[in-house]
């Protein structure tokens, strides 16, 4: 079955960012297809390459990137939500004249159309809400 996930919570802030990556891993391990993970709201911080959690804490970024590497999971960070919160690709940083880019490898910036597209192409959508 084809799934897409929507993630609202920032890693290491709300628990649901961690729940989402665990759920995503279980999905692909069971042979389901993960069409897209759409990071929205504070969830866009999941795509920051600058997160540096201590070694004895979860490496959520690494877990998402492993899903991308091993299964080609489409990790889409909403560009409108990301601009507001400062998650930028190299080209966006240049376009918006900001001093640095931080979008992690494996993630891409995309419009809200990608969320609509995910609903059209998935059998199931599961939302991982924030806690604030």
């Amino acid at each position: 079955m084809i799934f897409s996930l929507v993630v609202y919570s920032a890693p290491h802030a709300g628990e649901s960012a961690a729940t989402a990556v665990r759920f995503a891993r279980a999905l692909v391990d069971q042979g389901h297809r993960l069409y897209r993970v759409f990071f929205y709201g504070d969830g866009v911080h999941s795509g920051s390459a600058l997160a540096a959690p201590p070694q004895d804490e979860q490496d959520l970024l690494g877990q998402w990137q492993a899903l991308y590497r091993e299964h080609g999971v489409d990790l889409v960070v909403c560009i409108a939500a990301a601009q507001r919160r400062g998650v930028l690709s190299q080209s966006e940083a240049q376009r918006l004249e900001r001093p640095a880019a931080n979008l992690a490898e494996g993630f891409e910036l995309g419009g809200l159309g990608q969320l609509a597209d995910a609903t059209a192409h998935s059998d199931r959508i599961v939302t991982f809400g924030g806690s604030a």
């Binding site: 649901s16 279980a26 069971q30 959508i125 939302t127 809400g129 806690s131």
Partner: peptide, 19 residues
């Protein structure tokens, strides 16, 4: 567990999150 959660998702539609 997570596996059964996924099975529930397969068995049901739609899936609504309340947060």
């Amino acid at each position: 567990d997570d596996e059964r959660w996924i099975a529930l998702c397969v068995e049901h539609t739609p899936i609504v999150s309340w947060f």
